[in-house]
């Protein structure tokens, strides 16, 4: 464990909690892409199946359970409890265009052709594009609530911090995983446009609005 990975995990946890609290407190999921949240629930489900097979540490197990639990709770709030506030007209990204290629790639490029490893690879590839429906929805509505931008910022920063974690681990532990690194770079690049808007607008107290 190193400082980048710990702050990355905490940033990820913060993002998940921010979103869950935003929906729960405001009793509304307006502006939130349910499709992205379903993809995140799928990412955690396929990545954390090893909860059933191996124990690494209390931290590892508890964080995984929290992530999976919050992901499904968020999906439940969006599609069941606060379904009436779900903005389906703007959440129209064709997720099959993400899941199918990612699924195919996981079969072609992986470290080991075993079920758990292919599912893990699938989750790594899927996570790198899972935010696209949410970013697409914001580009369609032309704006985002400030709390949603904080959620996205924490979510984007988490994987950027993981990039530094991988540099650290390569240098100090000789550890590196090319699949996770390449997917992590792609994932972070997808947030760059949003980071620019967040830093130049939201941090200056303005609302995040895109030229629709």
């Amino acid at each position: 464990m190193n400082v980048f990975r710990l702050t990355g995990d905490l940033s990820h946890l913060a993002a998940i909690i921010i979103l869950l609290l935003k929906i729960w407190k405001s009793r509304s999921c307006a502006g939130i892409s349910g499709k992205s949240q379903i993809l995140f629930a799928l990412v955690f489900t396929t990545r954390y199946l090893d909860l059933l097979t191996s124990f690494i540490s209390l931290y590892n197990t508890s964080m995984k359970i929290i992530y999976v639990g919050c992901a499904y709770a968020t999906v439940y709030l969006i599609y069941a409890k606060f379904r009436a506030t779900y903005d389906g007209n703007h959440d129209t990204f064709r997720v099959e265009f993400l899941v199918v290629p990612v699924g195919g790639l996981a079969f072609l490029v992986n470290h080991d052709f075993s079920p758990l490893e292919i599912l893990w690879t699938f989750s790594i590839y899927l996570e790198s594009v899972a935010i696209l429906p949410q970013l697409f929805m914001i580009s369609k509505t032309g704006e985002a609530e400030t709390i949603t931008t904080h959620y996205l910022f924490c979510l984007g920063v988490y994987r950027a911090l993981y990039l530094f974690n991988w540099i650290w681990r390569f240098y100090f532990e000789g550890f590196f995983d090319m699949i996770a690194i390449v997917a992590g770079v792609v994932q972070t690049i997808l947030y760059c446009d949003f980071f620019y808007l967040y830093i130049t607008k939201v941090l200056k107290g303005k609302k995040l609005s895109l030229p629709a």
Binding site: R5, I56, K64, Y67, F175, D177, M178, I179
Partner: peptide
């Protein structure tokens, strides 16, 4: 291509 131990990252 990956060097390292088990999957201990989240």
């Amino acid at each position: 291509c990956s060097i390292g131990g088990e999957k201990d990252e989240l």
